[in-house]
Design a protein around this nucleic acid. Structure first.
Lengths: 176, 176
DNA sequence: CTACTCTTTGGCCATGCGGTCAGAATCCAA
DNA sequence: TTGGATTCTGACCGCATGGCCAAAGAGTAG
């Protein structure tokens, strides 16, 4: 519902209606609307984590890890569009939903830290040049995060092509 | 009000109250709330345009243009935080406000197209290597757009440092 | 001073929201 | 079969929203 009709159209009444159930059921099982939305965020984030972890783990070098990270993240976005749209819809209105901002921020910080570690690791191993790890991590994550908006506007957007271009871009930027 | 208290707290009643004026005044001067919010978007976008244009125009090379583009854009974000926060607040809820999505999308497409032209120009002039113009344009804009969120979370975020790092990153990526 | 237009007021409306609750229905173990 | 616990219903509450409008007020040209 979030993905299809947006945040403001996703009222408790609308949710209950869609479930073919009375509104009170939601109140019975959840403390409130905020808890429902937080659960949406939590579940999508954990899905993403479960998808990416094993795919990046198999990298034999930092360069390969970078490629795998980008490719697997974009693949997740591609194959989980509804979830991603729902997530962004909730995040857009995070101010109206206590807890959501904190949950996501934590996860987002962790993602940036992981990428930063990848860049510093590559530098220490002599695989990368003197790239700025934090700025690279931030900007790469921003580029990936922007993709959800791109595929929303143009569902046919070439994710794979963008992924390889992005990987090449950061590979060159961090080359020795 | 948008920047301080967020979209959902910015009702017509709250706006009128802040102006020390009756609610009907807004209805008298605007067709509806959507028109008010569209005006916010329109005005911030045109402010940004007015700020950036002259600053980028003076570039003597594509490399310099790239640096100036990034630096001036970040300087605008830095010095117009309230406007930027207000803008993002409206954009976050674009689905609830007809017209906003279209206005912004148009401006955003134009910005990406301009950056793409910068990269292709640099290539044709032999200044840049075989960088992917579109992917570079998209990812660079994403990196810059993400800054509004960064300074919201951490007002002391080092924008200048990030700007030079970002410029260096894209310079290296597009080097011959 | 008058007469007309423009602007503002303050109360009103219908609507939809999140949330509550008494009571009905259902489930399930003893 | 029974009886207590769990789950669900549908009506209801208070509240805030965007919008509307008759009437009062302010401004201004002749």
């Amino acid at each position: 519902m979030l993905a299809e009709n947006g945040y403001s159209a996703t009222s408790l009444a609308a949710i209950a209606d869609r479930l073919g159930v009375s509104k009170g059921v939601i109140s019975y099982h959840f403390a409130g609307k905020a808890e429902v939305l937080n659960e949406v965020v939590r579940s999508v984030l954990s899905e993403a984590e479960a998808w990416m972890s094993p795919r990046v783990a198999g990298a034999a070098s930092f360069t390969e890890a970078l490629r795998l990270y980008i490719a697997s993240n974009l693949a997740f976005l591609d194959t989980h569009r509804t979830e991603i749209f729902a997530l962004t819809e909730v995040l857009s209105n995070a101010r109206a939903t206590p807890g959501v901002a904190e949950t996501f921020s934590e996860s987002h910080q962790a993602a940036i830290a992981a990428l930063e570690a990848l860049f510093t690791g590559g530098r220490k191993a002599g695989e990368f040049g003197d790239v700025a790890p934090r700025a690279s991590a931030i900007s790469l994550r921003a580029a990936i995060d922007a993709v959800s908006g791109l595929i929303r506007e143009d569902p046919a957007f070439d994710l794979t092509g963008f992924g390889t271009d992005l990987a090449t871009l950061y590979e060159r930027a961090s080359a020795r």
